[in-house]
Nucleic acid binder design. Structure first.
Length: 423
RNA sequence: GGAGAGAUACCCAAGUUGGCUGAAGGGGACGGUUUGCUAAACCGUUAGUAGGAGCAAUCCUAGCGAGGGUUCGAAUCCCUCUCUCUCCGCCA
């Protein structure tokens, strides 16, 4: 959520920022509503003050057994006015907040301006895509042949975009979760969190999934719960409505969760394989930090995610997303894209965003510099470290042999019970 | 799911014949006096927050779990909801 005060004092900056995203901003309408709200507020607060003062007077008169009917009748009229104004203000405020909740974050200055992913900027590459002496197979073929991926039965159990992992496929999935968690906990200093997979509406609003993207979410009844689309939601919201100590920052959390996405609007895309599923596993990194440190932390977070790919020996590149390709809440975002031989392209496997104070303002997550200082919003960041399903796909494709077997990357062998090859 | 109890400031806790109580009293924290040093004792300070007006000092509004209602006036009365605790039932 953008700061209404920023819009009030710096409307042109807001217009320009949103224009980079290709978003037509309702800045003028917002400014007008804001002015209206403040005018009404001043009026109603004066009336409330009058009511408070007169009511005390009435109490005093009654205690002294003095007639106060006139004052009481006068206040009845004032009350009617207050009620009317309060109603109007509430309406205006609802309009303002629903508009604010639907306006995306402003891109950071060095984000390339562009319509979509075509204008993303490649930052660096790591690793050399392997030269195959045979035609590399897509992971779904390899997985079905080895009987470690079962798409048909996934469809039988649930439907399209669900997959059953079996035997060493399931084992590989679990090994990757543990490997990634251990790496980030032991080597990168993150604290492990195991959050609920169902969260309430406030959490979803806090991190920006709602109200705008409800059709992308799975909603669960009874009760009003949402299946988490990413661990970002519960983990960032751990500190919703809290004021943190400066010394406790940065907070660095790593969490494994299953992730659930309705994938509305993705019909026909990535219909085969593990790339786009309604349910997938992910290890997610989340940081809460001070504004002055957030970009340094952002860079470090990207490196922490990259380390996973490096240790797994998977070639990848780092891409800085253009203003048009960034998520709703992000101010700046790097994607890690892993090499997938059967596709012959780099595919997103991690998305590392700095949200600055956009989520913090929604979720009201603040910190205090000094014991008496005014609370300020933290900056929130997160990144996949990594998406497990896509990592499985990448390992299968990059480590496949001519006979259709799959070598296990060195660092995973201990997590695979010393098994070195899936055959 | 059934029965009951509760939610008040950093913590504990008083406050239901509605009216100088936005909140007694403890504890803690902070400051001070005393002291060779500690301790004790004594004195003082201690809602935070959000919003609005103002150049500012400052003032106003909201706020006793949340949201409504009654009333000139609500921590106090009424309704709805959430969460916590105890007992019973069920359950991994």
């Amino acid at each position: 959520m953008l700061d209404i005060k920023l819009i009030r004092t710096n409307p042109d900056q807001v217009r320009a920022g949103l224009a980079k995203r290709g978003v037509e901003a309702l800045v003028d309408e917002l400014l007008q509503l804001d002015q209206e709200r403040r005018d009404q507020l001043t009026m109603v607060e004066n009336l409330k003050n009058k009511r408070n003062v007169v009511s005390k007077e009435v109490g005093r008169l009654k205690a002294a057994k003095v007639e106060a009917t006139n004052l009481i009748n006068e206040m009845k009229i004032v009350n009617d006015q207050i009620k009317k104004l309060d109603g109007e203000i509430k309406e205006i405020e609802e309009k303002i907040s629903s508009m604010l909740f639907s306006i995306p974050n402003l891109p950071q200055e060095d984000v390339p301006v562009g319509k979509d992913e075509k204008e993303n900027k490649e930052i660096r590459r790591w690793g050399e895509p392997r030269k195959f002496s045979f035609d590399p197979k897509p992971h779904w073929e390899l997985g079905e042949n080895l009987e470690v991926l079962d798409f048909d039965r996934g469809a039988k159990l649930s439907g399209a975009r669900f997959t059953v992992l079996k035997g060493l496929g399931a084992r590989l999935e679990r090994a990757l979760v543990n490997f990634m968690l251990d790496l980030h906990i032991n080597k990168h200093g993150y604290t492990e969190i195991f959050p609920p997979f169902l969260v309430n509406r406030d959490c979803m609003v806090g991190t920006g999934q709602l109200p705008k993207f409800e059709e992308d979410m799975f909603k669960v009844n009874p009760g009003e719960y949402f299946l988490v689309p990413t661990a970002e939601v519960p983990v960032t919201n751990l500190h919703r409505e809290e004021i943190l100590e400066l010394e406790s920052l940065p907070k660095k959390y790593v969490a494994y969760t299953a992730c659930f996405r309705a994938e509305a609007g993705s019909a026909g895309r990535d219909t085969r394989g593990l790339i786009r599923q309604h349910q997938f596993n992910k290890v997610e990194l989340v940081k809460l930090t001070t504004p002055e440190n957030s970009y340094q932390e952002h860079g470090a977070l990207v490196h922490d995610a990259e380390k996973v790919l490096q240790l797994l020996g998977l070639p990848y590149r780092v891409v800085l997303l253009s203003s048009g390709d960034m998520g709703f809440s992000a101010s700046k975002c790097y994607d890690l894209e892993v090499w997938l031989p059967s596709f012959g392209v780099y595919r997103e496997i991690s998305s590392c965003s700095n949200f600055e104070d956009f989520q913090a303002r929604r979720a009201n997550i603040r910190f205090r510099r000094e014991p008496d200082a005014k609370p300020e919003f933290v900056h929130t960041l997160n990144g996949s470290g990594l998406a497990i399903g896509r990592t499985v796909a990448a390992i299968m494709e990059n480590y496949q042999e001519k006979d259709g077997t799959i070598m296990i990357p060195e660092v995973l062998i201990p997590y695979m019970g010393s098994i070195k090859v899936i055959k």
